[in-house]
Amino acid sequence: MHLDHPETYPQRHTHGADPRRPDGTRRALRIGLGGPVGSGKTATVAALCRALRDELSIAVVTNDIYTREDAEFLLRNAVLPAERISAVETGACPHTAIRDDISANLEAVEDLEEGVGPLDLILVESGGDNLTATFSKGLVDAQVFVIDVAGGDDIPRKGGPGVTTADLLVVNKTDLAPYVGSDLERMARDAKEQRGDLPVAFTSLVAPEGVRPIADWVRERLAAWTAAPA
């Protein structure tokens, strides 16, 4: 992921994707969560925080479309203390803030690291957007794309950068599949076709331990991140 050429980009230390803190230690792993409106991004973030907060030091950055609603949902549900949640305003364009001009998100990430001490994991949640919205590699180390069965079981077949390139594709709300006539096997087949060996997780966050496949994936990524040479 880091194909820098030091002699060409001598000031790369100002870039957000540098894996080291100024003191040389490895910084927190940053994972982006994107996907269409209503697919369950905020619910996933909340469930991840609950599942991992006892073992990891976590913070969250939200990118809402026009409110601080997602941040407030997380606050209301008390998944993390308020000082670990930061809302970035996006001027009605969340995809701009996570992909084209990541400066406000980088500030938020750094302010969190500075404000609440060394972190293991920072979740950056995009506002609901379209199927092409992906995170800049200058902002996150890995990204999760969250879709749901109710949005139509043809979404994996349609592809698009989110579905095809995300490090993890989450197909959420599997409990609703019988009610909305979605064919989970077909979704899995289409996803495999689009994504090759990249993983897909089918989840139902209303089920107990429903977030487990995603939480396990995060743990794996974090282990790899921590093991990598600083």
Partner: peptide, 11 residues
């Protein structure tokens, strides 16, 4: 306006 310095989020 596309220079990535945050201007897009301000009116």
């Amino acid at each position: 306006g596309r220079f990535p310095a945050g201007g897009h989020a301000h009116s």
